[in-house]
Design a protein around this nucleic acid. Structure first.
Lengths: 299, 299
DNA sequence: TAAAAATACTCCATAGGTATTTTAT
DNA sequence: ATAAAATACCTATGGAGTATTTTTA
C-alpha cells in the first residue's frame, strides 16, 4: 500500500548521476545505508531492479535509465513548484543561484552582489563560476536559477536576455606602447596566448582572428590574469574583454590597444529556464545586471 | 530544511478538487486533522497561503490555483513512473483501469474480461462505466489507463486506436415486423426514442437522422434496455447499436430492421494517454478488444 | 446552532544513524 | 587487500489517530 516518495526519486537521481551509492549518499547529505535502503525499497515497489550492483561501480538497467529520465523531469517540476510562491509578493527573497562564466565573474560579481543587496535586501545570491557548457547543464537540471554567459546559447528550453555588448582589446608588452595596432589577420601571425579549452572566450578570440582551430604550439592559460602576466613577461600578446582591463592590467607591465576593422565584441546575456515560475523576477534581475555591466568598474 | 513531499501534493490536489478539508481527507483515506496539518505545513514551507479558509467552503488563492495545476502535472508524471516497470517483462500484470461507454459496456465487457483473463492471467481489469466526457477527463488526470469510446475524441494528449465499425439498427414494435424500412429522413417524422443527454450514441443517432438538435417532445431513456422496453410497449421506435441487439431484444416484443442508404455506423476505438509508459501494452490489449468486439456475443 | 476546520495529545511506523559483515576486484 | 554495498540494530522524528475546542455562516 506504500507509494512512491520524492525522497526516493531524489536519492535515485543522485545514484544515477554519481554512479555510486556512497557518493550519492554524500550528495544527499545522508549515510550510505540510508540511501541503499531507499533504493531497495523503490525497487521492491516497482518489482524490478533499477541498477546492476557491482562492488566498484553501479550501472543503470534499461528500466533504470528510463526511470531516471522521468524522475529528473519530475524533480525539476517539483523544484519549480517550490519557487512558485516566491514569484508573487512584492519583495524577491530567498536563495538565487547565479552561474557566471569565468571571463566575466571576477569583474562583474562584486558590484552585482552589492547592487542586488541594495535592491533586494532579502535576496540571498549564491554565485557559481564555471564554463558555459556546465552552466547550461546545471540550468536545465534546475541546479541553477540563472546564468550570465555569452550569447547565443541556442537551447530551446532557455530564455536568452541580452544585457550588454562587450569589446575585446589587445594586450601587448609595455614596450610596444603606441606601436601600430595589428589587424585581425596580422594577429594570427603573432605569438597569441589564449585560455584553455572549454572557455567560450577562447573560441571568440580564435574566431575574431579567422582561425577555425587553435594553431599548433599555442600558449594557453587557465585565467585572463595568467595570460596578462605572461604578456607582461614578454611571451606574446593576448586578447581580453574590456571589462577585465582595469583589474588585470593594473599590476602588469603591458599596454592595451583597441582593435578595429571589425571591432571585436561579444554579447553578454542572462539565460534561464522558460518554465521557471520566477521568470518575471529574472527579468528584473537582468535589468540590474545590465546596468551594473554598463556602468563599468567605477560604478 | 524540510522539503516538499508527494504526500502534500496528493492531499492538496484532493483539497483543490473537493473544496473541503473533510472530503479531501476522506478521499485520501486519512482523517481531517491529518490532512489539515499537511496543508498547513505545505503553506508554511511556501511562506504563503494556498487556500482561503472559511467554515463552509474552501477557495483556492491565485497561488493555490497555479500550484494545483502544476501539482496535477507532477502527480500524473509520478503515476506514470509507477507504471514504467509494468511496461517491461513478458507478462502484463497488475490493475488495469478500463473505462467503457454505457452503450458498449454491457455487451462487450463480460467477454472482454474473460478474454483478458485468458491472455494475461496476472492482469486485474477494473472496469468503469460512464459517458465519454467523463472518461476523457479521467484519462487525462490519470484516473484511468484506457477507455473504450466512439471515435473521434480529438484530444491531442490521447492516442486513438480504431477497433471495429459498429452498425446501428432500427427497433420497432413486433407488430411492424417486415414493414417497409424507413429512410433516415423518414425516421425524424416518427416517434423516436433516444438516450438522455450526455450519451454519445444519442448524438450519433440524431446525426444519422439529419437532426441538428433533439426535437421537442422527444422521449428519453437512460439506457438502451429502457428504450427497447418502451418500444415493446408501443411508445415509438429507436436505434440501437448492433452489438446490443441480442441482449436487449431477447425479452422484448420488438422487431429489428437493418437500415440503409446510408447504412449508419460508428467507429468504436480505444484511447489512452500518449505519455503512458504502458502504451505498448495497450496496443496488445486493443487487439484483444477488437477481436472480442468483432466476434459478436457468441464469441 | 450546526457543520467544518483547528488544536491538543498520544502512539507507532519508519527514516536515518552507528557498527559490522559481506562481496567483488 | 581494499573499497564499496548490504545487513543488523537502535533511536528519534513526525505522520496519523482520537478527542476536543474554536470558528463562522
Amino acid at each position: 500500500m506504500k507509494s512512491l516518495t520524492l525522497k526516493q526519486l531524489r536519492y535515485f537521481e543522485a545514484l544515477a548521476r554519481t554512479g555510486q551509492f556512497g557518493r550519492a549518499a554524500e550528495d544527499c547529505a545522508i549515510t550510505q545505508p540510508a540511501l541503499s535502503m531507499q533504493i531497495k525499497e523503490l525497487e521492491s515497489q516497482l518489482g524490478a531492479p533499477l541498477v546492476e550492483r557491482s562492488a566498484r561501480r553501479v550501472r543503470l538497467t534499461t528500466l533504470g535509465q528510463q526511470f531516471a529520465a522521468r524522475a529528473r523531469d519530475i524533480l525539476r517540476a517539483v523544484y519549480e513548484l517550490g519557487d512558485l510562491a516566491r514569484a508573487d509578493g512584492d519583495q524577491f527573497s530567498g536563495p538565487l543561484r547565479i552561474g557566471v562564466i569565468p571571463t566575466v565573474a571576477p569583474y562583474l560579481l562584486p558590484r552585482l552582489i552589492q547592487a542586488l543587496g541594495r535592491q533586494f535586501p532579502a535576496l540571498d545570491p549564491q554565485p557559481r563560476e564555471t564554463v558555459t557548457q556546465r552552466l547550461i547543464e546545471d540550468l536545465l537540471e534546475s541546479r541553477l536559477d540563472i546564468a550570465i554567459v555569452a550569447l547565443p546559447v541556442s537551447e530551446p528550453a532557455l530564455h536568452e536576455e541580452p544585457l550588454f555588448e562587450e569589446e575585446f582589446v589587445l594586450v601587448r608588452p609595455a614596450s610596444e606602447e603606441g606601436a601600430m595596432v595589428p589587424s585581425a589577420d596580422h594577429l594570427k601571425e603573432m605569438r597569441l596566448l589564449l585560455l584553455e579549452e572549454g572557455h567560450c572566450f577562447r573560441d571568440q578570440a580564435l574566431s575574431f582572428c579567422n582561425l577555425p582551430q587553435a594553431p599548433r604550439g599555442l600558449m594557453e592559460g587557465s585565467s585572463l590574469s595568467t595570460l596578462v602576466q605572461m604578456v607582461g613577461a614578454g611571451i606574446g600578446v593576448t586578447l581580453i574583454p574590456e571589462m577585465a582591463v582595469e583589474l588585470e592590467t593594473r599590476n602588469a607591465v603591458v599596454s592595451v590597444a583597441r582593435l578595429s576593422r571589425p571591432r571585436p565584441s561579444r554579447t553578454i546575456g542572462m539565460v534561464w529556464r522558460r518554465s521557471n515560475p520566477l521568470a518575471n523576477r529574472f527579468a528584473q534581475i537582468a535589468q540590474i545586471v545590465s546596468d551594473t555591466g554598463r556602468a563599468g568598474p567605477r560604478g
